[in-house]
Each structure stands twice: as C-alpha cells, then as structure tokens.
C-alpha cells in the first residue's frame, strides 16, 4: 500500500519535470529554429505535452473502451481539419473576395 503510494507519487513528479522541461523548450525554441517552422514546432511540443497529460495524469494508459473513444473523436476532429484546410487552401476567389483582399 505505502510503496505503491510512493511509486505513484514519484510518477507524478516525473511527469511534472517532463512537462516543465517541455515548457522551457517552448520558450527557447523560437530563438533556435527558423521562424518558418515556429508554428509546427510549437504545435508538436504541445502534442507531446498533451500526450503526457493524457497518458499519466488522466490515467488513459490501459483504458480500452475509453482509449478507443478518445482516438475516434480525435480522428474525427483531424478529418474536419484536413477537409476544411483543403477547402481554404484551394480558395478560388482570393483576388475578388472582399474578405481576402479588402477594398481599401
């Protein structure tokens, strides 16, 4: 009982250190990488952090039904993103649209 408590407690602190390190990386990264990649780099770090929180703080590890539900909803969100991004990237009326080239 007591040992399992200690092990779990150490686990929480380990994740905390990992998250703190990643936060430091968040701040120092823009100084290092080319600004073109800042956006993707930031989102990548956020995803790693989110994964740590999901797996360890939210105890998703080993949850079968819940794990699949989470995955399913994330896939749907990913699909929404991909289609809407395809649409907006192929926007055909950029030159004539009021919202993309406002009349000055």
């Amino acid at each position: 009982m007591v040992t399992s408590y200690l092990i779990e407690k150490v686990g929480y602190y380990k994740v905390l250190i990992g998250l703190l390190l990643l936060t430091v990386v968040t701040f120092s990264l823009p100084e290092v990488v080319v600004s073109k990649y800042t956006f993707s780099a930031q989102m990548f770090i956020a995803t790693v952090k989110a994964w740590l929180i999901l797996m360890y703080y939210m105890h998703l590890k080993g949850e079968k039904t819940i794990g699949w539900s989470v995955l399913f909803s994330l896939l749907i969100v990913a699909f929404f993103f991909s289609i809407v991004m395809i649409d907006v990237n192929n926007f055909q009326y950029t030159d004539v649209s009021h919202i993309t080239s406002p009349t000055k």
């Binding site: 990264l29 080319v34 800042t38 930031q42 956020a46 703080y57």
Partner: peptide
Amino acid sequence: HLIWVFVFPYFYMIGAGDI
C-alpha cells in the same frame, strides 16, 4: 490544463520567431 497546453502556444508563441 490540456486545453491551455494548446491555447498557449497558438496565441502566445506562434509569433515568437517572427522578424
């Protein structure tokens, strides 16, 4: 917390590497 993990970089950090 998880939502903030994405909100923070999306608003505060994406401009960090800018000119």
